[in-house]
Design a protein around this nucleic acid. Structure first.
Ligand SMILES: [Zn+2]
Ligand SMILES: [Zn+2]
Ligand SMILES: [Zn+2]
Ligand SMILES: [Zn+2]
Lengths: 144, 144
DNA sequence: TCCTAGCTGAGACTGTGTCTCAAATCTAGC
DNA sequence: GCTAGATTTGAGACACAGTCTCAGCTAGGA
C-alpha cells in the first residue's frame, strides 16, 4: 500500500481490498481469481478495478507478471517470495517452484554478454514431475 | 506434410497452403500472421482451419508453442531452427534470439537435480536491448 | 468544509480463439 | 475412374479475457 501512496496514487477502499486479497491467494493467481474471491466476501470491487490495479502493482514492484502458455495473465507477489523458476508437469499440472543459483548466474551472464540490460526473466520447464515420470515408466513397462 | 499422413490425417489443399506459408514466416509467428499472409496471396484458407491446424502441427512435432507474456499464442518451427532463448526489449519491442550453451547446461542440470523429466523449456529475458539501453542512459544524462 | 483530480462501476466493446453444422473433399475399395 | 463414407472445411455464432467509456463518487489537500 505504501508503494502506491509514494507514487501519489490514492489509497481507496477498493485498492485496500484487492491488496488484502492478494495476500490470501496462492503463490500464483490471475485477475479472475481475485474477482471471484472478492465477490465471495463482503467487499464490493468491480472487475474493471481489479484489472486496472494489477498492472499498477507490477509497475510499483509489488507483483511480477509470470510468463505462461495458457490464456490468462498470471501474477505472483515479488516480496514474501524469493525469485524462483517453474517446473510444469504436463501430466498432472503440478507447478513446482525452485531456486537454483547456478541457473540464475548463467542467465545473468548470458544477458550481460550480449549487452542486454535485463530487468526480469522467467524460466519455464515443461515435462514430467518425479511422480508422473515414475508412473509413466511403469505404464510403459506393463505394456511391453 | 508426411508427419500428417503418418497419423492418418488427410493432405488437403488447405493444409498444404498453411504448411507452405509457415515456411515463409519469420522465426516466430502466430495464427493471425498466417491468416493475413494467406489472405494476401491467392490461397483461400479460413481462419478456423488455420486455428485448427496449429495444435495438430505441435502434436506431430512440426511446431513448438512458445511461452509468452503477450496475448496471442506464438509458434516456431522445430526443425530448421536450432533451439534458442529470447531477449525481449521493453522499449522497442525487438526480440533477440540467442543460444548459450552454458545456460542450456545449467537448465538441464537444474531439472535433473530435481528428478524432473524435462521435455522442453523456455527462457525469456525482458529489459532493454543494447541500443535502447544506450538511448535511455543518454536521456537520463540530459535530464540531469 | 469544500474542491477537484483521480478513481470507480456497469456495461459496451475488442481481440483472440473455439464451436457448430451443412457442404465440400479426400481416400480407400471396387 | 467411380463411389461411398468419413474427414475436413468455411462462415459465422459463440466464449472468454481484457480494455475502454463516461457519469458519478471519493480521497485528501487547502
Ligand atoms: Zn506430474
Ligand atoms: Zn512462481
Ligand atoms: Zn530496444
Ligand atoms: Zn525463438
Amino acid at each position: 500500500m505504501q508503494r502506491l501512496a509514494d507514487r501519489g496514487l490514492r489509497l481507496t477502499q477498493q485498492r485496500r481490498c484487492i491488496v488484502a486479497q492478494i495476500g490470501a491467494q496462492e503463490a500464483h493467481f490471475d485477475a479472475e481469481d481475485l474477482v471471484s474471491s472478492l465477490a465471495a466476501g463482503d467487499d464490493r470491487v468491480s472487475r474493471a478495478t481489479v484489472y486496472r490495479l494489477l498492472p499498477v502493482l507490477v509497475e510499483v514492484g509489488v507483483l511480477r507478471e509470470v510468463m505462461r502458455f495458457g490464456s490468462r495473465r498470471e501474477f505472483e507477489p515479488v516480496e514474501a517470495s524469493e525469485h524462483h523458476e517453474h517446473l510444469v508437469c504436463e501430466r498432472c499440472g503440478a507447478v513446482i517452484e525452485f531456486r537454483d543459483q547456478a541457473l540464475e548466474d548463467a542467465i545473468e551472464s548470458a544477458a550481460r554478454k550480449r549487452g542486454f540490460e535485463m530487468h526480469r526473466h522467467s524460466v519455464e520447464m515443461v515435462g514430467l514431475c518425479p511422480r508422473c515420470a515414475r508412473a509413466q515408466a511403469r505404464a510403459e513397462e506393463d505394456r511391453s
